[in-house]
């Protein structure tokens, strides 16, 4: 166990944890944040995605000691207290079914649209290809990302 600080959603938190503990457990269990979710622990599904200095990262395989002073953003901090445009679009399209995977799509799409504000259909599909949705809401997700890009 080691004392560390984590900068998450604009606040600095002190935690006491194993350095090799994945960030996901720090966020969920030490900080009480629930949006990054355990899906696979293998970086294969994206349910645990957070932004680290703006880049989507799979928190389930990211050792907490690797973060240093990096700024971590979770879904709770994505819209700075209000709905981010990607969230507005997902709500308008009523995307989720079970919604368990949603965190990964929202965080990844938000980061993607920052860099690619006017994406093509193929660019969206490629950028989202590493995420899983078991309920099969893919076509609604595509509609929502396109809607957000036009917002």
């Amino acid at each position: 166990m080691a004392k560390m600080s984590l900068n998450v959603d604009g606040r600095v938190h002190a935690i006491d944890a194993d350095g090799d503990m994945p960030l996901l457990y720090a966020l969920r269990d030490d900080l009480g944040l629930k949006n990054p979710r355990f899906g696979c622990g293998l970086a294969q599904c994206g349910a645990c995605t957070v932004l680290v200095d703006g880049e989507p990262v799979r928190s389930c395989i990211t050792p907490v000691e690797s973060l240093g002073a990096s700024k971590v953003t979770t879904l709770a901090g994505l819209g700075n207290g209000k709905a981010h445009k990607i969230q507005e679009a997902f709500i308008a399209e009523e995307v989720p079914q079970c919604g368990y995977c949603l965190n990964g799509w929202l965080m990844t799409a938000a980061a993607f649209l920052e860099k690619t504000p006017k994406p093509s259909d193929a660019q969206i599909r490629d950028a989202m290809s590493g995420l899983k949705c078991r309920c099969g809401t893919h076509v609604a997700i595509l509609r929502a990302i396109k809607r957000a890009a036009q917002a």
Partner: peptide, 13 residues
Amino acid sequence: VGPKVMGTIDYVV
């Protein structure tokens, strides 16, 4: 939908 997208809903986890 809103609570799921805004991340305010509780899942069993």
